[in-house]
Simulated assay, not measured.
Amino acid sequence: MATRALDRVGSEPLWRQLRHELLTRLDAGEFTEQFPGEMALVEEYGVSRHTVRQALRQLRADGVIVAERGRQPRIAPPPEIEQPMGALYSLFASVEAAGLPQHSVVRAFDTRADALVAERLDLEASTPLIYLERLRLAGDEPLALDRVWLPASLAKPLLEADFTHTSLYAELTQRTGIRLDHGREDVHAVIPTAAERTQLHCAHDVAAFSINRLGHAHGTPVEWRHTLVRGDRFALTAEFSAGSGYRFVHPKMT
């Protein structure tokens, strides 16, 4: 088999050319059955194994392929759940919209004090808070670890709710009349701890989104939430144009 041509006299590194070649072939619909291994690419392009590994390393960092030690690379599956950035959303509603069955394992649900969270909610350090901790599952596989705190003075009626299969926001509206109308999220890419990987059933090389949310209703902070979401099942999306910049989609709050 003749080797595929790469530019060996130009300034662009061979590994970068190889990455571009493989992306072009993927876009053209190749590799639907199987992605080529390292040695197959070495022979096909007439390059060193080091060059191939650099190209594959970047494709993995781009989320295009999954490459594990000792196993042949494979095309990364598309995220099962996509969430528009800038939207005040419910994870429950996002999973439902993706057509996946879901339920939650409630790990803790009680009233407690937390000085740091109380400060974030503009409350006194000893203020009682409703605390709800859940392992969120979608399609019978773990999706996220979710922890939320709300002022007990507002959210105490939630203690009567069953959160194994329901939306916190729906219950909050139904039982208290409170509906979040705006908020702020900080999203970071993190490597889960060994304990978190075990709970989320994710591989050692899968990153996660660490999301901190402060939610408001009529100018009053009512929710502090920390969610750890598997990065291989969830994606944040935004639309943009040269004229208007980013355009966010705002789905209905549920």
Rank of each mutant, 00 (worst) to 15 (best):
L88G: 08
D114G: 00
A87P: 06
R120G: 01
Y89C: 05
A108Y: 04
L121T: 06
M85D: 07
E96N: 06
R120K: 11
L116E: 13
A115C: 10
D114K: 00
E80V: 06
A108P: 02
L121G: 04
P101M: 05
E82H: 13
F92E: 02
V117Q: 01
A118F: 04
G99W: 04
A98H: 03
V95H: 01
L91S: 01
P101V: 04
A87W: 10
A98E: 01
G99D: 03
V105Q: 11
L100A: 05
P101K: 05
S104W: 00
F109D: 01
I81C: 05
P77K: 15
V106N: 07
E82T: 15
S90I: 10
E82I: 14
E82G: 13
H103W: 13
P78K: 14
E119T: 09
A93Y: 09
A87C: 14
L88R: 12
M85L: 14
S90G: 12
D114P: 00
E96G: 02
E119Q: 12
D122G: 15
R120Y: 02
I81V: 11
H103R: 13
L116H: 09
S94L: 11
L88W: 11
V95C: 03
E80N: 05
S104H: 07
P84Q: 14
V95Y: 02
H103K: 10
R112L: 13
M85Y: 05
A118C: 09
P77A: 15
F109C: 03
D114V: 00
E96L: 11
A97W: 03
A97L: 09
P101H: 05
Q83W: 05
Q83Y: 09
